[in-house]
């Protein structure tokens, strides 16, 4: 076992798969010599050569298209989009093309693409660098959307994503890249896509979160424990497909639920989860299912970011609303 940050775990997973499968290729803007703007691919070009890890021109749509062409020839492309806010430039390649290639070819073509990209607030980025756009991806059938919340999960989920025969959007929260270390096994391991993880068991209320909001939810759960409240925390790990079973099972047990997302409120994953719960477990509920989200504005300017982003205090407050309903 080694202590790793999430970025180290990601690099480790990429190295494992580059070693395991010669069809795995990494590319994107500055991923080669520079090792990526966050150093996720640091050292990999030296280790595996310029054919396996290479820089592309600044052309996101072209990066997506290239991945599609390579995937048809048996490669497992792992393109990087430098910041997920730039995803609009490659939206057609993702939602219009790779997500539909299997369907439109009458199920004759695999699209084993893992598109990695950093996102998320809390690190004072300029505009278009931090947006949580996972909802756009989750709405597209044919895609899987994976968002790790810690170094251990990051490695296992990324290996699974690369081995998956469908396109996976793998989103890396920037705040989590280097904020803490975890025990990460040096050997390879996988974590099943589409399965949530109960991070903390509890009896009184369920928090459902993903990405950086898992840490906030765990912190809220610790605070509430001082008041004698037992909170369960579910880390979704994958938001598409959504593990509705684990969610519903937990809510049936606790009867109260707060769904937490860093994204703005409208049309997000949280809304989807609330809908699933009310359809499947309404008679088990002691209170309305509540949401903690960012407000419906453009992502905050850096000076107001701490106010804009949901945090553990917001979660505690919402939890108390549910508990005192």
């Amino acid at each position: 076992m080694a202590q790793m940050t999430m970025i180290q775990a990601i690099t480790d997973a990429l190295r494992v798969e580059l070693k395991n499968d010669e069809n795995v290729v990494l590319f994107g803007e500055d991923v080669g010599k520079n090792g990526g703007v966050f150093r996720a691919t640091e050292g990999l070009q030296d280790e595996f050569g310029e054919d396996r890890v290479f820089d592309t021109p600044l052309a996101e749509s072209g990066i997506g298209g290239l991945a599609i062409g390579l995937a048809t020839q048996g490669f497992r492309p792992v393109p990087e989009i430098q910041f997920f806010g730039f995803v609009y430039e490659v939206m057609d390649s993702i939602s219009g093309q790779m997500a539909r290639m299997r369907y439109r070819s009458g199920n004759t073509v695999n699209m084993p693409i893992t598109l990695r990209s950093p996102f998320g607030g809390g690190v004072h980025t300029p505009e278009m660098h931090a947006d949580s756009l996972e909802g756009l991806m989750a709405q597209q059938p044919g895609l899987k959307v994976v968002i790790p919340s810690n170094p251990y999960d990051a490695k296992g989920l990324l290996i699974s994503a690369i081995r998956d025969n469908d396109p996976v959007i793998y989103l890396e929260h920037m705040k989590l890249y280097r904020s803490f270390r975890d025990e990460v096994p040096e050997e390879e391991y996988t974590i099943e896509l589409g399965k949530a993880n109960v991070k903390r068991e509890g009896a009184d209320i369920t928090f459902i979160a993903y990405g950086a909001m898992v840490q906030a939810s765990l912190k809220a759960a610790e605070e509430l424990e001082k008041d004698g409240v037992s909170a369960e925390v579910i880390d979704l790990r994958t938001i598409a497909p959504l593990d509705v079973e684990t969610i519903v099972e937990s809510v049936k047990k606790t009867g109260r639920c707060v769904v937490v997302q860093e994204a703005q409120r409208v049309a997000g994953i949280a809304s989807q989860i609330v809908a699933e719960i009310q359809e499947r477990a309404i008679l088990h509920l002691e209170a309305p299912v509540l949401r903690v989200t960012a407000p419906d504005t453009i992502f905050s300017f850096p000076q107001a970011e701490d106010v804009w982003l949901p945090n553990h205090k917001d979660i505690v407050k919402k939890a108390n609303e549910a508990l005192n309903y």
Binding site: G69, G96, Q97
Partner: peptide, 24 residues
């Protein structure tokens, strides 16, 4: 390779295939 209705998407796809051919 299957194409789609938004035009020209096939060009980078074909380039991706060409890269695969070169690598192999």
């Amino acid at each position: 390779l299957s194409g789609s209705s938004p035009v020209t998407t096939q060009v980078p796809h074909a380039v991706g295939i060409a890269l695969a051919l070169k690598m192999k």
